[in-house]
Design a protein around this nucleic acid. Structure first.
Lengths: 223, 223
DNA sequence: TGTACATCAGTGAACGCGCGTTCACTGATGTAC
DNA sequence: TGTACATCAGTGAACGCGCGTTCACTGATGTAC
């Protein structure tokens, strides 16, 4: 009787085929980029006729939106699983890197160049929040910075965050933790996105060592 | 007699029209992203017929390549001008940020999500090198880190760079300077690209303050 | 267990679109004597 | 300064392509009695 989670053979088949479409979509994105995604091409690859897919997706846009949602969910789950396994901030960082390396175009679909017109559906911000909350938790869980040297002034941006912490909602993170979270996010994204985009090719160093070096800096007191 | 720089009226006109095409191309990219760039659409907007543009560009690919080249050149020139004005690393950072904010899609065309198949033409790596060299110069020009506390070990990644500095060619930068350059590049790219992609919207802090905070960290000894 | 009906997956044809690109041609602009 | 010729910008028609999407239809799968 439950409407959600109905499990007739037909519904199972539908869900299965939707998944297969998405698998092919990811393949196509990996090969030619997200802008080249085409319903007809996917159908052809699956041995179906073009219009068949309209039984499963309202159109190209819904498919892309679904892929974005899946990417967010996958990353959120990966980080949540790492956190549940007791990973600290360093563990989360490495989980993030692993996730990104596993499928660069999936990473870019979420954090890459935005298409000027595109507006992400409402519910993806909740998914993005889940990711940020997990990272923020780990930042807040770090041992607080050295017993405040009296007279050592807070970083100006940390002070600024104390006055602009609305976006963190009711999260009990200190301004310093918020600051560390933002540094964590932006620095690791910086290394990762340049690495994935191939901007380090031709340079002989190992990107994972640069990643670890940045991570080290983020874990240091005062970072 | 000089083949280059010939300046007949016709050649001036050609150059002028090529520029106009590129201006429209940038507008189109800013509105709908680089993947939506279309020669026909540009021609229409200029009041010309589609095939007319083939007098000026061999095709869509040559136009895009030319835009990439221009973007690289523009950034290289901007940084070189700042350096010539006596700007240090902080000044270069702010020049970079100004350049990126002036036209986000231009920034993304160079440092954004790569199209899987695309191979950048050979001469753009030389332009990318010019940019990196300017930044590397500024990193090398910083006062060297505090008189090495004896026993304070070098960061492992700095040591790694000492053994993998080929990409810096004959640049007389110390491994520490190379390391600082990479941190500079990746951290600022991290803040910038997330800001330009709109990932901070909804958070109430000022991105320029985060940028300055990261910059501060990069200028500190030991960063 | 068997028949009658409803549901739904998938097809093929079709529409309109915009794209990149080629080609033969017209008309204006510059050049040489 | 004037005429004859070459150069080149831009046009319009055309080709082939793949796209997203709609629609009427067939045939298989499930459901109810």
């Amino acid at each position: 009787m439950a409407k959600t989670g109905a499990d007739t053979p037909r519904e199972r088949y539908r869900a299965q085929l939707r998944e297969e479409v998405k698998r092919h979509a990811w393949e196509q994105i990996a090969t030619a980029g997200a802008s080249a995604l085409s319903l007809n091409a996917i159908a052809k690859r699956m041995g179906l006729s073009g219009p068949a897919l309209y039984r499963y997706f309202a159109g190209r846009d819904e498919l892309i939106t679904e892929l974005v949602r899946d990417a967010y969910r996958s990353l959120a789950d990966t980080l949540a699983a790492a956190a549940a396994d007791g990973a600290g901030l360093a563990g989360l960082a490495r989980a993030l890197r692993g996730w990104a390396l596993a499928d660069p175009q999936r990473y870019f679909l979420v954090y890459g160049t935005p298409v000027p017109g595109y507006r992400a559906p409402e519910d993806t911000v909740a998914l993005a929040d889940r990711i940020m909350r997990t990272l923020l938790d780990a930042c807040a869980a770090l041992p607080p910075d050295a017993p405040e040297t009296p007279g050592a002034p807070e970083a100006p941006f940390t002070a600024h965050l104390a006055a602009h912490r609305d976006w963190a909602g009711d999260h009990p993170a200190t301004p310093a933790a918020l600051h560390r979270f933002l540094a964590f996010w932006t620095r690791l994204h910086g290394v990762l996105s340049l690495e994935l985009a191939g901007h380090f090719t031709g340079m002989a160093f190992h990107p994972d060592l640069l990643f670890e070096a940045e991570l080290d800096g983020l874990l240091a007191p005062g970072f």
